[in-house]
């Protein structure tokens, strides 16, 4: 009797760990072991199939001597910062507007959310036409009488990446809005009322009281959006196919082309490692601070 209690106690102690173990093992293999494999390939001479030899940092040297990779890295930073900033800002604005006891809120919410639901393989085509100077916005405005109006970013190598940003913002803002809206709904109305009684206007209340209270929502939005930004892949392929020239190349498209189209698996793996290191440099400190906070009993 005593023994069985002790056994069940011990089981109860170990059960949580046992339950977590399969997930941990699977992730260790499917994430970390595979990263290690990629790291190994990046040090090998692999071209069409994996080759398990060792050539040192040759592939990294080759990678960084490729002009297209430099474009890809620059684009990643332009794209990510603009995408994160605009999506967060616009999402917050939409959430605040929607939170003003609006009629037809449900319909508007659906309108802002639907782009997430559609595959970019085809919405990319629609955007391609809209942004095309001879077919889309520019033509419509020109036909309406403003003939000097020019909006041809998509054909300008220097500006095409901003078109990608526009389409990406369009696709993901609804999600940010939903999270912010949720955050706003979670805020006690009495806080706002109290401030209003003291004579503060709505803009001031939002700026100084409500937005700071949304900090957790901001964190969720940024984690989820960074995930989307890193994965931006079919977006590029469908909208610009990395053109004009290779002006909208991104690390994910670079890696894909190197590995699967150009028979440079080693270079592809090296670019994947560079991407992972960048992500780790940004995400690991964030995770660390987040988790430390929890440990402190937050």
């Amino acid at each position: 009797m005593k023994r069985s209690i002790r056994f069940s106690d011990r089981l109860a102690n170990w059960l949580p760990r046992l339950v977590l173990t399969p997930s941990l093992l699977v992730v260790l293999v499917a994430v970390y072991l595979f990263i290690a494999w990629t790291g190994w390939i990046s040090l090998s001479s692999s071209n069409i199939v994996p080759r398990y030899d060792f050539v040192g940092l040759e592939q990294y040297v080759r990678l960084w001597s490729t002009p297209r990779w430099h474009t890809a890295v620059a684009n990643l930073f332009i794209f990510s910062s603009l995408f994160l900033g605009l999506t967060t800002g616009l999402g917050l604005l939409m959430a605040i507007l929607l939170d003003q006891r609006i009629r037809a809120e449900g319909a508007l919410r659906a309108i802002f959310l639907y782009p997430m639901a559609l595959s970019f393989i085809v919405t990319g085509t629609a955007w391609k036409w809209i942004l095309n100077p001879a077919l889309g916005v520019q033509k419509v405005v020109n036909d309406a009488g403003w003939t000097s109006f020019v909006f041809d970013w998509i054909s300008q190598p220097r500006f095409a990446i901003y078109c990608v940003v526009i389409a990406a913002v369009w696709q993901s803002t609804g999600f940010a809005m939903a999270i912010f809206l949720a955050g706003l709904r979670g805020i006690d109305n009495s806080v706002i009322k109290a401030a209003q009684i003291e004579g503060a206007g709505l803009p001031l209340i939002y700026r100084t009281i409500i937005v700071p209270m949304l900090r957790p929502a901001f964190l969720s939005v940024i984690v989820l959006l960074s995930y989307v930004a890193i994965k931006s892949f079919d977006l590029i392929l469908a909208l610009t196919n990395t053109g004009p020239g290779s002006a909208t190349e991104m690390p994910s498209t670079f890696m894909y082309a190197a590995t699967f189209r150009r028979d440079q698996m080693g270079v592809g793996a090296a670019s994947a490692m560079m991407m992972l290191m960048t992500v780790a440099a940004i995400i690991v400190p964030y995770l660390y601070s987040e988790l430390k906070e929890t440990r402190d009993g937050c």
Binding site: L20, S23, L24, V31, P251, S252, M275, L276, A280, L287
Partner: peptide, 16 residues
Amino acid sequence: IFGILLFGCFLPFQAV
């Protein structure tokens, strides 16, 4: 362990 699981979110899938 949670941190280890979470990092998996940011893996570029093309690499695996």
